[in-house]
Nucleic acid binder design. Structure first.
Lengths: 205, 205, 205, 205
DNA sequence: TATGAATGAGCCTTCATTCAT
DNA sequence: TATGAATGAAGGCTCATTCAT
């Protein structure tokens, strides 16, 4: 009985998250009203407030969730070729992961737009701690493991990750969505070279 | 005679720009209404629409204007030590300009926030062409001149500038405003090294 | 329980309709704002939009409603002398109904003005089908019944009704409201003769 | 010199009238602002007020003017076959004029819409006296002449004209613009028969 | 006479949030 | 828990009209 109620609640929340995301991706955050979300999710407007404080609260959860899914999917894709990947150099491992994520984003431009506009490093770390859904992965930990497995030591790994993430996310936004200044494919060689250089800067000799 | 009217118009527009910027910086773009701007500028609400199409139009002009001022000021600061700067290597020239701009932004965090949230490369180029006030400098041209004066050739200079700007602007946002993951001073060595590496990638041997 | 809410809604809608009509009749359609209507009806401005799409939507419903009431009242008035009326010739029946309606309009000039300015045949038929409140009568059906009961056949009855309605409504507007070119009483003999002639044109021998 | 100024003024007024009409016909009266009119006429907004009190004033002049032109054109068309027309019966003369006007309106539906929505008998007479441009014809006088030339006497000619005008104008609006309830061609036989009957009612034996 | 910048009241509409049911 | 009717502040925008030039 109580389980049924709990399950019902979970479904409602899930429905709100799902439909809100769809609206955010297609109409944009500002243009989506709470009424829109509730209607699309098939619940009453008041119900929204039983599950979320406001639209910003909902957005934060979604951002963390979607970023997590993106990462998880990248790792799953790589998993199929895992043995090979595990034998790669740390640099190459990173490039592989990044390339995988960029390919995902290229095929879901709405998602790229949504994430880029709403994700920042400061929030990024905060979100992982606070707004994560239970199933979400803490991908920072995955990076840490990759770093630990590297053949060499990484100096200031957080700074390195930060630089890479910022460079990748801001350039991909412009190149994938607007082909400005060039397409993502055209910039990839330069981008990946820059990533490699960043890593090398942090490589302890 | 007619000059009086023209002067009056210039003042009104200036007042609107000035006060709008102040509101955008303190309250944020979304939270600032056109009524707010008009009131603060001491003009009627309708007057706003004589000078700008809407808030977005005004924002675009401001972004280009402020970015231009930032750059101009950096160059002016450098000018005092011009002889020295002119003799520097291209890499060092770039770092000097960047460092100057970062220092300005560090002392005007509201401006940093406003520019970072609203400036993107695609828009950046567009803005310089379309929304520039007459006095604004086309700083892309200044970069081109610097590149032309370099001792070596630069391959794909637009891509290089793009990568540098994106890296600098997104990292500075987080480091200056939130000290995340570290303060701007702490990250500068890494950042500048990354910039140097990016430049080297584009250096034709 | 739920009936209370429903009753409340009915009252709100009724209040809006009632007060909107009064404003339309006294101030005119253009000069009445939605804020006026809401205020007079004692509800919040936003409430208006829970019940009507916009002012035009409300107007359409009102027109159909008032026209319906006019007709219903005419039939009710006639009902008192029903036996006599039923024995009348079709021509005389029509004149009786028309005269009844004209008398009503003469004593409610605002209503006449409102209806005349906003009712047209094309809309008239549409309104009866779409914007009718549930209680409204479909008076076109009443005409059809009268025609069916006539001693003779009527050719193209819709055209006949159309001609009569247009003639009556446009002339009564001028005569009742402005006594131009003559008072309604003075024109009635001519008007009714014209109606009779129109009917005769459609009488199949 | 002074003549030049006067000519200039006439041109300005003419430009305002002409362009206002075009806007009223295409965009509608409500939707046309004084700014629109001034801009299209190539004069300053303030200039409008030198020639007209407000939009209603301008509209009134236009209505009278356009109605006059309609009538004048009808008479000009008939003029070509004048001899024949002069020998016609009064009834047939009227029908000829009406048919001519209806044909004009059928080929200029915007004009029909504009006139129908804004012309009423009460205003009609007033307009002829007050808002007429100098060149406008007083078509009521033409009717009077036609009546005077009839073989028989007409009782209450003003009422007769009134009934005819109201019947024609209100039915043509619906039939020409919306084909409701039938097209203008389909209704013409009935309409003209009704007109003949109205005339016969006013024919003194 | 002509201009057009400036006004500011006023309009429509949206929407987050509350609360009685 | 869930509902959705009600709110009313707030915002964007238009436009007739004025008036200094």
């Amino acid at each position: 009985m109580g389980g049924k109620v709990a399950e019902n609640k979970r479904q409602k929340k899930e429905a709100l998250l799902e439909n809100a995301l769809e609206l955010f991706l297609t109409k944009g955050l500002q243009e989506t009203s709470i009424a829109d979300i509730a209607k699309k999710a098939g619940v009453a407007k008041g119900t929204f407030y039983l599950y979320f404080k406001d639209k910003v609260d909902l957005r934060n959860i979604l951002i963390a969730h979607e970023a997590s899914k993106l990462f998880e999917k990248a790792m799953a894709n790589i998993d199929e070729e895992k043995e090979e990947w595990k034998n790669l150099d740390f640099e190459d491992q990173m490039i592989t992961v990044i390339d995988n994520i960029l390919n995902q984003l290229e095929s879901d431009k709405h998602l790229l737009s949504f994430i880029s506009k709403n994700l920042s490093w400061g929030y990024f770390k905060f979100a992982l701690l606070n707004n994560r859904l239970e199933e979400d992965v803490d991908f920072y930990q995955v990076f840490e493991k990759m770093i630990a497995n590297a053949n060499y030591q990484i100096k200031d790994p957080e700074i390195m990750i930060f630089l890479i993430i910022e460079l990748i996310s801001s350039t991909s936004y412009s190149c994938i969505l607007y082909d400005e200044p060039v397409s993502i494919e055209e910039i990839k060689p330069y981008l990946y070279q820059s990533v490699r250089n960043i890593i090398r800067c942090h490589r302890n000799v």
